[in-house]
């Protein structure tokens, strides 16, 4: 279990140029999260590399406190297209 504010803080600290970040506690148990992240740092990176960046930012939170993290990562351009 971990507080959503901690998840947000870690992502903002580990991923540069975050323009939009939304964290959702999927089950209300503070261990199944969904994160939507828009960052210029994702530019030129594969999906795997983008997600690895986020997992690295969360570090040890991913080996216990956070059981599941559904990730939606976008570059600023992709986000513009996605949000119409």
């Amino acid at each position: 279990m971990v507080d959503p504010a901690v998840v947000e803080e870690r992502i903002r600290a580990g991923v540069t140029g975050v323009e939009h970040l939304k964290i959702v506690d999927l089950t209300g148990t503070r261990d199944h999260y969904e994160a939507t992240i828009v960052s210029a740092e994702f530019d030129g990176k594969t999906l795997i590399e983008q997600h690895q960046l986020v997992y690295a930012a969360l570090g040890e939170l991913m080996s216990g406190p956070v059981h599941a993290l559904a990730l939606k990562t976008y570059t600023p351009k992709q986000w513009q297209t996605a949000s119409g």
Partner: peptide, 21 residues
């Protein structure tokens, strides 16, 4: 795979991704 979660899918020896991807 430098990937902290399960499941993990591999095709032809290469990591393709977890559930989201």
């Amino acid at each position: 795979a430098n990937w902290p979660t399960i499941p993990q899918l591999y095709v032809a020896g290469t990591f393709v991704g977890g559930c989201d991807i």
